[in-house]
C-alpha cells in the first residue's frame, strides 16, 4: 500500500521540465535530483519524500532521458499517477521500478489530497472519492514485481 499527498501537475509534462538537459552531465542521479521540476515552484515547496506526483495526459513526453524517472525515484516519489503516460517514460520507469499508476480521472485529484493506493484502487482520504486504475499488462507487472528490468533479467 502506498499513501502520500498529491503534488499536482497538468497535461503534457515533458522530461525537460522534470530534469533539464543542461543538468544531464552532472556526475550522478543524486547530483541531478535537486534540480527536478526546477521551474515548478509548488513541487519545490510542497514535495516531501513519499509523496505522489499526480498529472493529466501524456506525462513524461519528449526526450528519452531515463534521468527523468531516475531523479523522481531518487527524491522518493512514491508513485506517479497520471491519466496517461508517454511511451518511453513509461518504459524507463518500469525498468527502474518507479511505480506508475494509470488513472483516467487523475485530472480530478486536487493538490495536497492524501491518497491511498492499494491493488487496483486509488482512494482520496481527503475527499473519500475512489478512482479506477488501469491494470498493467502481466508482462510489465512481472518486471515491476521483480524490481525493474535488471533484476528481472537476473531472475531468468
Amino acid at each position: 500500500m502506498i499513501t502520500g499527498k498529491s503534488i499536482v501537475f497538468g497535461d503534457n509534462i515533458d522530461t525537460d521540465q522534470i530534469i533539464g538537459a543542461h543538468h544531464l552531465t552532472r556526475p550522478s542521479i543524486a547530483a541531478m535530483a535537486p534540480y527536478s521540476f526546477e521551474h515548478h515552484d509548488h513541487f519545490r515547496r510542497d514535495f516531501a519524500p513519499g509523496d505522489i506526483v499526480v498529472a493529466g495526459r501524456n506525462f513524461g513526453c519528449g526526450s528519452s532521458r531515463e534521468q527523468a524517472p531516475a531523479v523522481l525515484k531518487e527524491l522518493g516519489v512514491a508513485a506517479v499517477v497520471a491519466a496517461s503516460f508517454a511511451r518511453i517514460f513509461f518504459r524507463n520507469s518500469i525498468n527502474l521500478g518507479l511505480t506508475l499508476i494509470e488513472c483516467p480521472e487523475a485530472g480530478k485529484i486536487r493538490p495536497l489530497e492524501r491518497l491511498e493506493i492499494e491493488g487496483d484502487s486509488l482512494l482520496s482520504l481527503t475527499t473519500g472519492r475512489r478512482f479506477r486504475i488501469v491494470p498493467l499488462p502481466p508482462f510489465i507487472q512481472a518486471f515491476l514485481d521483480n524490481g525493474g528490468v535488471v533484476a528481472h533479467l537476473r531472475t531468468r
Binding site: 528519452s64 532521458r65 531515463e66 524517472p69 518511453i88 518504459r91 525498468n95 525493474g148 533479467l153
Partner: peptide
C-alpha cells in the same frame, strides 16, 4: 525508436 539508458545497456549486454 528511442529507449532509455537501461534498455540500451541491456541490449549492449544481451
Amino acid at each position: 525508436t528511442g529507449m532509455g539508458s537501461t534498455d540500451v545497456a541491456v541490449a549492449w549486454r544481451t
